[in-house]
């Protein structure tokens, strides 16, 4: 998204506050583990993507991502959180997300490109670790409601380090 146009708030019919509310709602649903409701924020054509920490600019076919879910895989990812043998998140991590720096970059034909900064504090087995990064999402409006068409999370970290996995949604 390096080539994104400079944000033009004044000519964009979508209000920044609507995107902020959308992203804050998402963070709330994830932190409170209401993942079925969270899935409802996705269009069935959507992908959830996390590029490798050293490959932010690469596409998902020609490089190795950490996560590159289509909707079917994403549905299983959500289901796995509640399977007793989904060991990596049994018991669930405790998380608090901070989402800031929300910008609307463009809105064309109902497709809205937004970015935001995030940090996720995650506690697991008595240890806290942190994910820091930037969202580069593509949203669409379906029947008046915003939905994810591409939910892309760039981890701005030298590697996952002690966080170890991306077993939570980042």
């Amino acid at each position: 998204m390096n080539s994104l146009p400079v944000p033009k708030q004044s000519t964009s019919p979508i209000q920044n506050s609507e995107v902020e509310t959308f992203l804050s709602t998402e963070a709330w649903l994830l932190d409170t583990w209401q993942l079925d409701k969270w899935l409802g924020m996705f269009d069935p054509q959507a992908r959830y993507q996390v590029p490798s920490t050293d490959g932010h600019h690469l596409n998902s076919v020609e490089s190795l991502y950490l996560v590159d879910d289509d909707y079917r895989q994403l549905c299983f990812r959500v289901k796995r959180f509640d399977l007793p043998q989904g060991h990596a998140e049994q018991p669930h991590s405790i998380t608090q997300r901070l989402v800031t720096n929300v910008l609307v970059h463009s809105e064309q034909n109902g497709v809205i490109d937004v970015t935001a900064g995030f940090s996720i504090f995650r506690s697991r087995h008595g240890v806290q670790s942190q994910y820091v990064g930037r969202y580069e999402h593509r949203l669409i409006r379906v029947d008046g409601e915003l939905k994810f068409l591409n939910r892309k999370s760039l981890l701005v970290m030298p590697g996952l380090g002690v966080a170890g996995t991306v077993s939570i949604i980042v």
Partner: peptide, 10 residues
């Protein structure tokens, strides 16, 4: 392929 999984394991 480009793109590297870099992580720690305790």
């Amino acid at each position: 392929m480009p793109g590297t999984h870099i992580y720690g394991t305790s």
